[in-house]
Design a protein around this nucleic acid. Structure first.
Length: 195
DNA sequence: GTTCTAGAAC
DNA sequence: GTTCTAGAAC
């Protein structure tokens, strides 16, 4: 008698034919989820980050299928100008300091600009990589990206060496000179900066 | 991107 | 013994 292998479907309600999508397409899926959409315009959708790394954390994405910052050229400057307008609008709607920028090495598909508050106070902020991806030059500020694109006509890829080096940067508070020993100590320390 | 967890660090 | 980090995930 042959042994029947068990189906390894995560969701048994979903038709088995539907292939499981790769995690890196998660943002494209999230853009379709009304529960996650914060606001939208003709060319842009703003969603709430599913794993926010601060009290406020949104993602600004184009409806156009631009996979990452590396597909950008000068023809996209108008679209990016709209990113800036959306950022200004979001700032008007919030009482806290907000920063806008892009990860130098994005993990997820679809060009996305992070709009994140400086408190960095969130249960989803867990690792050194999380921290360094928002507090080192791995985080390309919106204005810097515009300047680089205007100057070079494209966004240069970061070398693996630079990437590795930035991710292993020793922890340092983003609001003072404190250098915590580890992540729990950093997270505890961040609380003193909350008004 | 997150989850899980082995083993390093304490 | 417990806390914490960091690498694999087919």
């Amino acid at each position: 008698m042959s042994k029947r292998s068990l189906e390894k479907e995560e969701n048994s309600n979903r038709p088995a034919k539907e292939p499981k999508k790769h995690w890196s397409l998660g943002l494209v899926e999230s853009m379709k989820d009304p529960k996650l959409i914060y606001k939208e315009t003709k060319n842009i959708i703003v969603i709430k980050d599913k794993y926010p790394k601060a009290k406020i954390h949104y993602l600004v994405l184009p409806r156009e299928e631009i996979s990452s910052i590396f597909k950008l050229n000068k023809s996209h400057l108008d679209l990016l100008e709209e990113f800036g307008s959306v950022f200004n609008t979001i700032k008007e709607e919030h009482d806290c300091e907000l920063r806008a920028g892009f990860h130098a090495v994005p993990s997820m598909h679809r060009l996305h600009m992070h709009v994140i508050s400086t408190d960095m106070n969130s249960p989803c902020l867990k690792t050194k990589i999380h921290w360094n991806s928002f507090t080192t030059s791995f985080f390309i500020l919106y204005e810097d990206l515009i300047n680089n694109l205007t100057k070079d006509g494209c966004i240069e890829k970061m070398s693996n060496e630079t990437h590795k080096s930035l991710m292993s940067t020793p922890l340092k508070c983003n609001q003072c000179s404190f250098e915590p020993k580890n992540m729990p100590q950093l997270k505890q320390h961040l609380l003193i900066h909350i008004k």
